[in-house]
């Protein structure tokens, strides 16, 4: 750990406004195709739970595409598709409530970490997450042979009784950082993308360094269309949603 500066009072504590890693999602471009959902699940060894369980609110995907409705037929409109994953809050409400430090803040990556093997399953973090993005392993879900051949060795396979959530594919971030370090340079913009951004056919999900003002994601996050989910709660989320019609200036 890189010698964290420990603040004395809450008011003093302020992580860099923008954080280190961030995401910008253009809701005008998102077509709701669920490629991100599938990609995330494949990358992160997310189990499938079956019809009954998934219908009972136990689907395990780390990422969901939301949509609501406005109006009534024929003036009915679907609200723009909105992929919602862990917002990697700078002041994450989930973190302080865990009694055993199973969800903590990474000082280096400025991400919200879930430590599976420390988790005892109180599920308080999930209750306190205003974005409802945490999923709990209610059971050891069956993955019959030979499906486990596909397990990504970079990602822990979680057992029952632990909480999990989107990690921004931290395994990929680490790989890119290691690579960059071995070449004596910084990670360049576009070098690393989590599975969802990588798969997104519409290029609606953009990922990158927030502390680099020149990166695509930084620019998009500062765009006039950018909003943060439940901004008013002061959680300092790292995912910016671009609302309204795209204007193409940063594509």
């Amino acid at each position: 750990m890189a010698n964290p500066k420990i603040p004395e009072f809450k008011a003093d504590w302020k992580e860099g406004e923008e954080g280190r890693w961030g995401m910008a999602i253009d809701m005008d471009l998102c077509t709701g195709c669920q490629a991100c959902v599938a990609a995330c699940s494949m990358e992160n060894n997310v189990p499938f739970v079956g019809e009954e369980m998934s219908g009972y609110g136990r689907q395990m995907a780390w990422l969901r595409v939301e949509r609501l409705w406005e109006g009534e037929y024929p003036e009915v409109k679907m609200t723009p598709f909105q992929p919602v994953m862990c917002q990697q809050c700078g002041s994450a409400p989930c973190e302080p409530v865990c009694p055993v430090f199973a969800t903590v803040h990474s000082q280096v990556e400025q991400l919200n970490l879930q430590v599976y093997n420390r988790c005892v399953g109180t599920r308080y973090c999930a209750n306190n997450c205003p974005y409802v993005v945490r999923v709990f392993n209610w059971a050891d879900y069956d993955r019959p042979e030979p499906l486990p051949n596909q397990f990504n060795p970079d990602v822990t396979v979680r057992r029952r009784g632990v909480m999990e959530k989107c990690t921004f594919c931290i395994q990929r971030i680490h790989k890119a950082e290691d690579q960059a370090k071995s070449e004596g340079r910084e990670v360049v913009d576009g070098e690393v993308a989590p599975a969802c951004a990588q798969a997104c056919p519409a290029d609606a999900i953009v990922f990158g360094r927030m502390d680099d003002p020149e990166s695509r994601v930084s620019k998009l996050s500062k765009d006039g269309r950018a909003v943060h989910l439940l901004e008013e709660l002061g959680t300092n989320p790292r995912v910016a949603y671009l609302k309204g019609g795209s204007n193409g200036n940063l594509g």
Binding site: A39, M42, N152, A199
Partner: peptide
């Protein structure tokens, strides 16, 4: 372990749909 888009291929330029992502579930 994972099917990802081939960024050189002019059809998909590195992107995939959900079905492409799940193709490993067919193989295994």
């Amino acid at each position: 372990l994972k099917a990802e888009g081939n960024k050189h291929n002019p059809v998909n330029l590195g992107k995939t749909c959900a079905r492409g992502q799940a193709t490993l579930h067919g193989m295994y």
